[in-house]
């Protein structure tokens, strides 16, 4: 693997609220390598979105952000707003969940793409417009030369998301941060956008930091996975390893819930929130031991694999990992069996 494009080390985002400090992100570390797709996987409230916002400087005071975030040669957390503006939308692009909201309703899509180009590049308006049409074609919009003059409301949700991707690609970024880019879309359009992202990262040599709770999108795109719970990573590793051998009890439960496996207690989670002491999952963990309650477990290699780690005492030397690994199921076992038997119409 080449040098990482993005290195996040010990990121903490603490929010001051009336009810005390909320540790939205609490010691998160990961890297995104060149051309690599890393997925931050977690439920709502796990801190995945605020982690991305903190990385890109979109969260300001009174939030307290600490840690190290290196993007290329720049330390993002200490960078000035001026430096950040030069980076954001240029070498680092951001794609939001709801494209209809991300686009400005009073400008044509062409103007919005051209703006992203002229902000960072010294090009003429005509050249920017030509490039906008090219980009619309790249993201698969038909009639690009006419659509360039249309307004967001004239486009469907799927097309808007394509335009948002075109804007993100406008300055040829090295890293694209995509926060739930397909969650607001219908299944069939979602599949098209997933395909498009898969294609773009190879044609544009793009690193992708993808935030999602949808395991199907993760399985389709991720090279590596970081599983988040309570603002911190609990498991990380190559996508195939994590999906096939989920090793942290939380990851296991998350994956099982996707398949709707029964047998767990069905109670709403406690309203006290996630504990800050010890392993953040210890109150809900079926395998909890005393050690989990006091110290945050360190990342330990899973079954002696070099790249697959889980922050769980059972993967350390003091406990037997067969306790948690005995009934592990691969996500592919939960898949729909669509034996679309027979041939197509040809």
């Amino acid at each position: 693997m080449t040098d990482p494009v993005l290195t996040v080390d010990g990121l903490r985002t603490h929010l001051q609220t009336e009810n005390g400090v909320v540790r939205a992100v609490d010691g998160l570390s990961f890297t995104v390598g060149g051309g690599e797709t890393v997925c931050l996987v977690g439920e709502s409230g796990s801190g995945k979105t605020i982690a991305c916002d903190s990385i890109t400087g979109l969260v300001g005071p009174p939030a307290e952000i600490s840690g190290d975030v290196r993007f290329g040669d720049t330390e993002l957390l200490s960078a000035s707003e001026r430096e950040l503006r030069a980076i954001r939308g240029d070498s680092l692009a951001y794609l939001f969940q709801n494209a209809q909201n991300a686009l400005d309703p009073v400008y044509t899509v062409g103007d919005q793409i051209a703006e992203a180009i002229t902000f960072h590049r010294d090009v003429s308006n005509e050249a920017a417009r030509e490039r906008a049409i090219d980009l619309l074609q790249t993201v698969g919009l038909s009639r690009a030369s006419e659509r360039v003059d249309e307004y967001p409301h004239e486009l469907s949700d799927g097309m808007c998301q394509r335009v948002a991707i075109a804007i993100a690609l406008a300055a040829e970024p090295d890293l694209l941060i995509a926060d739930e880019p397909t969650s607001a879309l219908d299944v069939m359009i979602q599949a098209r956008i997933v395909d498009l992202l898969a294609e773009l990262r190879s044609t544009h040599d793009l690193s992708l930091l993808l935030v999602t709770h949808d395991l199907r999108v993760v399985a389709a795109l991720a090279d590596r996975i970081v599983v988040l719970y309570g603002g911190t990573a609990v498991e990380r590793g190559p996508a195939t390893d994590v999906l096939e051998r989920p090793s942290h009890p939380y990851t296991q439960e998350l994956f099982r819930s996707f398949a709707g496996e029964r047998g767990r207690r069905n109670r709403p989670r406690s309203r006290e929130g996630i504990p800050v002491e010890g392993c953040r999952f210890h109150q809900e963990c079926p395998h909890v031991v005393d050690a989990c309650k006091h110290t945050r477990p360190a990342f330990e290699p899973v079954e002696d694999r070099e790249t697959h780690h889980a922050a769980c005492v059972y993967h350390g030397d003091d406990y037997d990992d067969s306790t948690v690994m005995a009934e592990v199921k691969s996500t592919s076992e939960f898949d729909i069996d669509t034996s679309t038997g027979g041939e197509r119409d040809d």
């Binding site: 799927g158 599949a191 098209r192 199907r216 399985a219 795109l221 991720a222 999906l243 996500t331």
Partner: peptide, 23 residues
């Protein structure tokens, strides 16, 4: 066929049964 597979070894989602247009 537009539902992505949960198997990480099958990277692409498209299986050729896509529709002609998006919308």
């Amino acid at each position: 066929s537009s539902v992505p597979s949960l198997d990480a070894h099958t990277p692409a989602t498209a299986t050729g049964e896509q529709t002609l247009t998006d919308d």
